[in-house]
């Protein structure tokens, strides 16, 4: 009995740590899909891009991946703002975001993946840092630092975003975009500019998420696909546009997946997210903390 209790406790801990990381992956989608209504299915592709940049700089210069990701934030912000500009000009303004906008992001996802394959091949890449490997032990509880550091970084990212959205003018304007664009115009803010900033921020989070991903596991270009289902399942389960909901949902999914992997085998874990997504859509489409 003692053994299975250890197993249970450690499965929960592993799930929470994994869930923290999932939160970092999903926060960007919570902004783009949840608040801006832009179904950016290419989000995981940007994450993989972030992973590869962390990999290149880390192997060449030996800098810590999380530090790299923070340095890369502005670059990813401008990349996101640029993508939004194209999206707005080509689809949103013409009212074609449903069919063509989705196809655009799908094409983007695909092109990024194939380009990475062409440049780097399909070998798994990894980074080196002092916290990959050792682990803290507290009684029977096991905290691998490889998981703990990303989880803490993800929570810091969440706190920063939540503070930004609640206490700055631009942040409040971003929340307002989803509610009343006319009122926003009357306040003297251009909805397009606000959306561009918000989408830039959403893509900027992928720089961090990408670095965290390559800390947790070796990465190859098609790994991103597994995250599409997860990311949107978490986003929908948490309630669209709610960042606290996203974190709670991410932890829940992390724990569920960790249990599945522990008791049924890791090859079943990818199916969990889809089950969660379908059940949420069928029974509570508004999510846990939906607006």
């Amino acid at each position: 009995m003692g053994l299975s209790f250890d197993l249970l406790i450690n499965a929960v801990i592993a799930g929470i740590l994994l869930g923290g990381f999932y939160a970092a992956v999903t926060l960007g989608v919570s902004i783009s899909f949840g608040i801006l209504d832009i179904v950016n299915i290419a989000h995981p592709a940007f994450i993989i891009l972030g992973s590869y940049i962390a990999y290149i700089v880390n192997t060449r210069l030996g800098i810590d991946p999380i530090v790299i990701s923070i340095v890369m934030l502005p670059a990813f912000y401008f990349l996101g703002a640029g993508v939004y500009q194209v999206y707005y000009e080509s689809f949103e303004r013409r009212g074609q975001e449903a069919l063509r906008g989705l196809s655009f992001f799908f094409g983007l996802l695909f092109v990024t993946e194939v380009m990475l394959i062409l440049v780097f091949g399909v070998d798994y890449r990894y980074v080196e840092a002092w916290y990959i490997g050792p682990s803290w032990r507290l009684g029977v509880m096991d905290f691998p630092l490889r998981m703990l550091v990303p989880c803490v970084a993800a929570l810091a990212l969440f706190a920063a975003l939540e503070l930004f959205l609640s206490y700055t003018f631009v942040g409040r304007a971003i929340s307002a975009v989803a509610q009343d664009q006319l009122a926003l115009r009357l306040m003297g803010a251009s909805p397009i500019r606000i959306k561009r900033i918000a989408f830039g921020i959403s893509i900027a989070t992928t720089a961090v998420a990408g670095a965290l991903l390559i800390i947790i596991q070796p990465v190859e270009p098609s790994v991103g696909r597994e995250y599409i289902g997860r990311v949107f399942a978490i986003c929908v389960l948490g309630g669209l546009g709610s960042l606290p909901g996203t974190v709670i949902a991410a932890m829940l999914l992390g724990i569920l997946e960790s249990f599945t992997a522990t008791f049924y085998g890791p090859s079943w874990a990818p199916a969990v997210a889809f089950g969660v997504l379908l059940l949420t859509l069928a029974f509570r489409p508004a999510g846990l903390l939906g607006r």
């Binding site: 899909f33 179904v39 299915i41 449903a98 989705l102 696909r225 597994e226 599409i228 289902g229 949107f232 399942a233 929908v236 085998g265 090859s267 079943w268 990818p270 199916a271 997210a273 889809f274 089950g275 997504l277 379908l278 859509l281 069928a282 489409p285």
Partner: peptide
Amino acid sequence: YLTLRLRGAFFAIATLALAVVLQTLVVN
């Protein structure tokens, strides 16, 4: 039946995830 009662985007996302799940089933 499960997803088309909602907004179109949900159906698109669900189909994307369906591929991953069916692949998991077949692999196992």
